[in-house]
Design a protein around this nucleic acid. Sequence first.
DNA 1: TTTAATGCAAACAATTTGCATTGTG
DNA 2: CACAATGCAAATTGTTTGCATTAAA
Lengths: 151, 151
Amino acid sequence: MNQTLIDQKFESYLRSRSLKLTPQRWRIFERAFATHKHFSAEQLYAWMAEEEGPKVSRATVYRTLSLLEEGGFIESLDTGGGEIVYEHVLGHGHHDHLICPDCGRICEFREPRIEKLQREVARSQGFTLESHSLRLMGRCASCAESLGDLG
Amino acid sequence: MNQTLIDQKFESYLRSRSLKLTPQRWRIFERAFATHKHFSAEQLYAWMAEEEGPKVSRATVYRTLSLLEEGGFIESLDTGGGEIVYEHVLGHGHHDHLICPDCGRICEFREPRIEKLQREVARSQGFTLESHSLRLMGRCASCAESLGDLG
DNA sequence: TTTAATGCAAACAATTTGCATTGTG
DNA sequence: CACAATGCAAATTGTTTGCATTAAA
């Protein structure tokens, strides 16, 4: 999915809900799609402050992030560090995460067999599965290495 | 594992770290093991306030909860609702959770096949798996029912 | 011109921390 | 008696909200 198409999706999403396309929304939206890394609300606010463009307040950052999440443009991930991070989702497929608590690195992975088992588990307990969050925590290769024999 | 044995573990854990066995620690510890449900720090503090026994402050609740978690006596679970809940762990086996966002119900399940796949995934990405958190979110049977055809 | 969005600052909720006081080992 | 733990209240952190003002549609 190319950027133009995503832009159109966003525009039509706003229109369909009679929401307004403001400069700050546009800026936040673009910035979220400009990075392929995970970012927090605070990080995004910092970008808004240091990069040039129309002024964006902290409140608007939070509000727009929620909006983008509801619209399915971004997804949130609770890393467990008390901070929620986001990633854009269009053009991506679903995936889960491996997190290194030492360096904060986040890797993505796909494992359809796990997804399948999840559906089975939910069904067997009478739940209608709506979503899931799977985080694997562990030391990544480079942290393990830099620790030498001490880790 | 019976209660007496757990008590001993706690005592020896404290001793091994030259920590003191205070009335409030004991009370919190006992209360955490007296319930088989998940509870939040705030909930536990409320219990301390309404049930009788030595006075326990909020700060001590939080401090002791961390202590118990470090010692492996309890485990924390982020339900995604901005609140962390705990459950005691001794005598339990490892398990993951199904959470109903509507009523807050939390169910436990075990699925060794998922665990196995997780280890494979981590290994394949060069991570040393230390822990994981898997939450399945979905509507539980009774919430689905009470919604009728509206959900 | 209608209706939604913004910015700001105050409000919040959950948790942590500094410090004087108290109490266990 | 030494050092750790408590209580309290103030401080933090991440996020939300009320409201007057501004600006899309």
